[in-house]
């Protein structure tokens, strides 16, 4: 049920209008606007310090913007906590995966939103149901037959990634925010992230995919928002750019070509 990319008519699920965030007097984001549509992957690209992480913090309710507003289904919303954003259907896969290694898989899966039964003061975790749901959700993202009571540290690296994605998919029915790790990943690990992004898009979620790699962004993205110095430096669709354009635009392309030019002047024979 993937919607056609660049379908401008579809109303955005989540919209940012003129969002500004300051840390002290330094603006981390200034007047950023973007829209996320159902069944569409919006890739946010930028170098370290361009405001990507702050953008994720705003969308997921960790950071409140100083100016501007968030609109969910056209209605202005203010998230006071990540829990509120989660309750409204915005799920986030954090850069560090937000996994407690010494806790079991199902405890990690439900962390902060554990199912309970019984009445206070006898309200307790519904362990059976939690284990069952966690197992099923992990199978959905491609890790079947997992023992949900083993510690998360016993998972292999790719499975841990899947746990974070499965958690986000399970709790975020509408918007998925994937903040890609800056640490080096193997191709297999990356493939798991990209596959989960695609899975989310295909189940009709609006996906915000934050990355610093134009190649990977171009593999899954429908739209590309370039961040630079906390501002939107470009808002492009798949029709506008190919991988090379995107790479040049993101990776300080202008500086690189200037460097190439000056090298050519210095060594004209090359």
């Amino acid at each position: 049920m993937s919607t056609v990319a660049g379908n401008g008519e579809a109303a955005p699920v989540l919209e940012l209008r003129g969002v500004t965030v300051r840390f002290g007097s330094v603006p981390a984001l200034s007047r950023v606007s973007l829209s996320l549509r159902a069944g569409e992957v919006t890739a946010v690209l930028g170098e370290n310090g361009s405001g990507k992480s702050t953008l994720v913090a705003v969308v997921s309710g960790v950071q409140r913007p100083a100016e501007g507003e968030l609109l969910l289904d056209g209605q202005p919303v203010r998230f006071r906590s990540p829990q509120q954003a989660r309750a409204r259907g915005i799920a986030t896969v954090w850069q560090d995966l937000a996994i407690a290694p010494l806790m079991s898989v199902w405890r990690n899966f439900f962390l902060g939103a554990e199912p309970t039964r019984g009445l206070w003061p006898f309200r307790r975790l519904d362990v059976g149901r939690a284990e069952e749901i966690a197992t099923r959700a992990m199978a959905r993202v491609g890790v079947p037959g997992l023992d949900p009571s083993q510690p998360a540290s016993a998972l292999q690296a790719g499975e841990r990634q899947s746990l974070a994605v499965a958690r986000a998919l399970h709790f975020g029915a509408r918007v998925l925010v994937v903040d890609e790790p800056t640490a080096p990943m193997t191709v297999t690990q990356r493939a798991l992230v990209l596959q989960s992004v695609v899975a989310a898009r295909d189940s009709g979620l609006a996906v915000l995919f934050v990355t610093h790699s134009p190649q990977y962004a171009h593999l899954v993205g429908d739209r590309f928002v370039l961040l630079g110095g906390g501002r939107v430096a470009g808002d492009l669709t798949r029709e506008d750019v190919d991988v090379d354009d995107l790479t040049r635009l993101v990776a300080g392309g202008d500086e690189l070509s200037r460097l190439t030019d000056s090298l050519r002047v210095a060594h004209p024979d090359r």
Partner: peptide, 21 residues
């Protein structure tokens, strides 16, 4: 209990715990 889960998470992965609410 959920309180116990919060105790484990507060010590095991404080940042993750805050991010997850």
């Amino acid at each position: 209990t959920r309180f116990g889960n919060a105790v484990f998470a507060s010590g095991g992965a404080p940042r993750a715990a805050r991010e997850l609410g």
